[in-house]
Amino acid sequence: MASKPRIKVPKSASAGEVITIKTLISHEMESGQRKDKEGNPIPRRIINKFTCAFEGATVFECDLDPAISANPYFEFNAKVAQSGTFKFTWVDDDGSVYEAEAPIEVK
């Protein structure tokens, strides 16, 4: 049950300031290593890719592997030069793509 992702980006910053971005998505991150009660393997279903882009330019991206636990949380820094929007995407093994965005105003 992947629900809406949560993101935290400051509403405003001064030009050139290094800001902290936090993101979290609720996701089971089923590793594919487990078996159910009958002994059948539970198919793998994880978020396999996360990206953050600012006005089209990639700020941060990473691949995720089955060892990452449920509800993956990322915290990273970015330097902002002008106002714009951060776009976040999470790619699920089943092909779903979860998206979120957050604007920031640079004074």
Binding site: M1, R6, K22, L24, S26, N71
Partner: peptide, 15 residues
């Protein structure tokens, strides 16, 4: 509230 792990449960509650 972002760091609070209990908020994941609150979101599940909202669902």
């Amino acid at each position: 509230s972002f760091e609070n792990p209990g908020m994941i449960a609150v979101e599940d509650g909202e669902t």
